[in-house]
Amino acid sequence: MTLKSIGVFVDATPEGEKRIDYAAALAHRCDAHLAGIHVVSAVRPEYRSDYYVIGEKAIRAALASQKAADEAVTSDVRRRFEAISAKRDLRAEFRVIRRGGPDDDLTLNSLHSDLVVIGQRELQELRGYTSPEKLLLSSGAPILVIPSGWKSESIGNKILVGWNASREARRAVADALPFLVAASSVTLLVVDSEQRAGRHGEEPGADIALYLTRHGARVEIEQVLSQGSPVADVILSCAAAHGMDLIVIGAYSHARSVEMLFGGVTRTLLKLAPVPLLMSR
């Protein structure tokens, strides 16, 4: 494994603790530095009665109470992170980002990582986090999204790669190479190859499979037709049928602007994938 700097977003939820456990195990295996990134107040509900207090004294009391609660949560998350890191004897550090601050804070804490580990809830429910597309575009770091309901300690033993012969897919393969080489099996899934026949070549998936094999990965190619089904559904169905514990995809889009929106396949997988998802752009 060649990952040497891993960032993990940590919070006070049970999922957050499991995420630290996985990131720490990965960092230990790779002999990598681990940075725990905590967004203060990211788990606070959107509406609270003390947002509507009136009077200077009441406002100050509410702000003091909020600050104390933030500090208590941060202290608890820090203890968890440091205890797990110490158990693994890792080189680690704990960083704090204030909610409502500039997106640059999140980008800066991801910019120098080989991999950023984040939970599914951060992307969909918790306030204070940069959208995944902004994080990918601004930092360039690949993101590993771990679903809230993920129970297995194994991630990356059996990997499914969504391959469409695009630049984004090629970048995802390169970023996922440490996982692909270490996996017991890698399946390159090619959906509706005739739609990009000119880029796939005579045998869709064969060239990228040969590339991975030269690196030591154990690769199989599976070509399927969507028959009108959404491509994301085809990917999820294949992952379930083969018992995959990691899906690798490029962050596809039809837009060319910097402030692009992800394509339907990527957004569906971000929202619904029941297994970890490694994304690059």
Rank of each mutant, 00 (worst) to 15 (best):
K4W: 04
G7Q: 08
P14V: 15
G16V: 02
K18Q: 08
R19K: 11
A25E: 08
L26N: 07
H28V: 10
H28G: 07
D31F: 05
H33Q: 09
H38K: 12
A42H: 06
A42K: 07
V43C: 14
Y47S: 08
Y51S: 11
V53Y: 03
E56Y: 06
A58K: 09
R60L: 13
S65A: 15
S75K: 10
S75W: 05
V77G: 01
R80Q: 12
F81W: 03
E82G: 03
A83Y: 02
A86V: 10
R88K: 11
R91W: 05
A92L: 00
R95P: 00
V96K: 09
V96Y: 06
G100Q: 13
G101N: 12
G101L: 02
G101Q: 12
P102Y: 06
D105P: 03
L108E: 11
N109D: 08
S113E: 15
D114L: 01
V116L: 03
V116P: 00
V117N: 01
E122N: 14
L123F: 00
E125A: 14
E125S: 12
L126M: 06
R127C: 04
Y129L: 09
S131F: 05
S131C: 08
P132K: 06
K134N: 13
L135P: 00
L137S: 11
L137T: 15
L137G: 07
S138Q: 10
P142T: 12
I143Y: 02
V145T: 05
P147I: 14
S152Q: 03
S152A: 03
E153Y: 06
I155P: 00
I155R: 04
G156I: 00
N157S: 15
L160T: 04
W163S: 10
S166H: 07
E168W: 05
R170C: 13
V173H: 01
D175R: 15
A176W: 01
A176G: 09
P178L: 03
P178C: 07
A183H: 02
S184G: 15
L188H: 12
L189K: 07
V191Y: 04
S193R: 09
S193K: 12
Q195W: 06
G198L: 15
R199Y: 10
G201Y: 11
G201S: 08
E202A: 15
E202R: 08
E203W: 07
P204V: 02
A206I: 02
L210G: 09
Y211I: 11
T213I: 01
A217N: 04
R218H: 13
I221D: 01
I221R: 07
V224K: 09
L225R: 09
S226M: 04
Q227K: 12
L236I: 03
S237L: 09
S237H: 09
A240F: 05
A241V: 08
A241Y: 05
H242R: 14
M244D: 14
L246P: 01
I247R: 08
Y252F: 11
H254E: 14
H254F: 04
R256I: 00
M260Y: 13
M260A: 10
G264V: 04
T266S: 08
T266F: 01
L270Y: 06
A273L: 01
L278N: 13
